[in-house]
């Protein structure tokens, strides 16, 4: 009998005010998650937290019984960015590598290594390789369909995590898209991202039933996220059967704690798929996606009745 599906709180991809970030992690102390990722994936120029803050938050979370992992940048292109990875690797927590540089730096620093969603684990041979260099846990790329997840997870002995809720990180650039909307470049960073705690919606120039289209993408600093939230809430049992060990809830500006509780209740069997989806829909009030898992376009949403015999 395998352990119950774990829940993890992913790294905050957005930039929020310092007090908001501190409050968010204070609340996380009592949330029903097993692991909390801190650190920085998107941009070296974010300023809400210092390295010292990250260390303090990490220790507090460990005290509260959480596993703590520090996530690292998805693009590392210069010494300043390498230095951030090195600084995080010195703190003593496990490291989630999102670039090959972090795989090396974390190993040299003697840390436990997690391969993040931006390390391209597309097949079991990738997983064998990562295992051979000491990786213990893999968060799979967001676009993998169920069949690929299954083949990797069932043929290797690592722990696997999938991105299960939140706006999906789809692309990373050298350009700051947020500053671009203000006519500025990344090197002219004026910290506008903190004014957009949920990112900036991008909509196609079209109308759906006479209304403006739902957002297709979200600008978030140097990254592009999906316009809609991903949710694999309906698939928690299916994912467990697929041999996935943990589901990642990616922090959103609002209601993240409530989302976690719904996922936890669903995993614990307190509510069924129908009630849990209704609770989630009532909370989010916006269209969701689950296309990637079902081998469709990532933006699509498939009704569970069409997929599983439930």
């Amino acid at each position: 009998m395998r352990d119950k599906m774990e829940l993890t709180l992913g790294p905050i991809l957005f930039e929020w005010e310092r007090s908001e970030v501190l409050d968010f992690y204070k609340a996380a102390l009592t949330l029903p998650v097993d692991t909390v990722y801190i650190g920085e994936v998107v941009c070296v120029k974010k300023r809400s937290l210092t390295i010292k803050d990250i260390e303090t938050i990490g220790k507090d979370l460990e005290q509260a019984g959480k596993k703590v992992v520090l996530s690292t940048l998805a693009i590392v292109s210069n010494e300043e960015e390498l230095e951030l990875v090195r600084e995080l690797s010195k703190l003593g927590f496990s490291i989630e590598a999102n670039d090959a540089s972090a795989l090396k730096i974390a190993k040299d620093a003697g840390r436990t290594i997690f391969a993040g969603p931006h390390i391209k684990t597309y097949n079991k041979h990738d997983a064998f390789f990562l295992e051979s260099i000491g990786v213990k846990n893999i968060c799979l790329p967001v676009e993998l369909p169920k069949e690929s997840i299954k083949d990797i997870a069932q043929n290797t002995n690592l722990k696997y995590e999938v991105f299960a809720f939140g706006k999906i990180p789809l692309a990373f650039s050298w350009r700051c898209y947020t500053e671009r909307t203000y006519g500025l470049s990344k090197s002219e960073c004026a910290w506008h991202c903190k004014d957009h705690p949920e990112g900036i919606d991008l909509r196609a120039d079209t109308k759906e039933n006479g209304k403006k289209a739902a957002p297709i993408f979200t600008i978030n600093g140097t990254s592009i996220l999906s316009g809609k939230n991903l949710s694999l809430l309906e698939f928690t049992e299916d994912l467990r059967d697929t041999k996935v060990d943990a589901l990642r809830i990616s922090p959103q500006y609002k209601d993240t704690g409530e989302v976690i509780k719904i996922f936890r209740d669903k995993i614990n069997g307190k509510i069924n798929y129908k009630d849990s989806s209704e609770r989630l829909q009532a909370l989010i009030k916006k269209p969701l996606t689950n296309g990637y898992y079902n081998d469709k376009a990532g933006m699509e949403f498939l009704e569970i009745n069409d997929i599983l015999n439930v």
Binding site: A74, I75, V142, E143, L170, F217, G298
Partner: peptide
């Protein structure tokens, strides 16, 4: 966007560049 870490195409079409 950095090559190899861009899923815009698969998000909209299902066809992954990678």
């Amino acid at each position: 966007n950095i090559e190899g870490r861009c899923y815009l195409s698969s998000y909209v079409t299902g066809a992954s560049t990678n």
